[in-house]
Design a protein around this nucleic acid. Structure first.
Lengths: 123, 123
DNA sequence: ACCGTAGTTCGTAACCTATGAACTATGGAA
DNA sequence: TTCCATAGTTCATAGGTTACGAACTACGGT
């Protein structure tokens, strides 16, 4: 089992961050981790009502880790994950807050739209 | 020749924006357009000292356009491109400025590093 | 030593991207 | 009008990336 790779803060790139967060599953994972730090991978076997196979989930965590967005460490049989937002905030001030805010705004917009015509809930 | 597709403002997604700007060439194009509005595609046959084939360039412009980041319109034989940043700023306030600022910070960091050990200029 | 849980790795099919070659659209020049 | 040059687009395809089931590894308990 190869060791986990955590890029040092100066190796983190904007492109990498944007790419990692351009996937809705990863964005959701990151957003959740930003709030409830220390969550494990299997806390995310369901993401916004969608089942994610655990191999896929593992890859998503790897993508977030290698983009420098999260830090993962083994703790017993499971994996504790936490964001590296303090570090990133220092290197790219305002970037993550703006992205998270935009994601929230988008989710809020979806909710408003669903309320207006509730039939489309299963679209 | 199929007509150009410009998503309406409410169809623009955060994921789409992040994905479009997670490519360094597209980010450079967007940054340049944000400053010198009205530039044509062939203004970008070179991007940060790299030659971009024009078919590739065309795809990059399409990606930016269909993510909702730019508006393109034919003017005579060429194509005028401009950003839709005012609209996007309204829908996702602060998002684009934060991303652009981060890209600048990164470029500034690279420049500082190159100055410190100038030998690596050709890496 | 064995089992169950939590994640990782591997193989492969599906999808995405870059690029050269061929094409289309437009505005002059002959 | 016909021809040509310029600016971009589209197509085919090769190479890269991603998703996911199956098989595997790591750890803690019994």
């Amino acid at each position: 089992m190869r060791p986990l790779i955590h890029p040092s803060i100066e190796d983190i790139t904007v492109e990498g961050i944007l790419h990692a967060l351009s996937d809705p599953v990863r964005a959701a994972i990151y957003a959740e981790l930003a709030v409830s730090s220390g969550a494990t991978c299997s806390n995310f076997l369901k993401v916004s009502d969608r089942d994610i196979p655990k191999s896929t989930l593992s890859q998503h965590f790897r993508a977030l880790r290698e983009a420098g967005l999260i830090r993962s460490e083994r703790q017993g049989v499971e994996m504790r994950n936490s964001t590296r937002c303090a570090e990133i905030e220092q290197r790219f001030p305002g970037l993550l807050p703006a992205i998270m805010k935009a994601h929230q705004a988008q989710a809020a917009g979806r909710m408003r739209a669903a309320k207006r015509k509730p039939k489309s809930a299963a679209d």
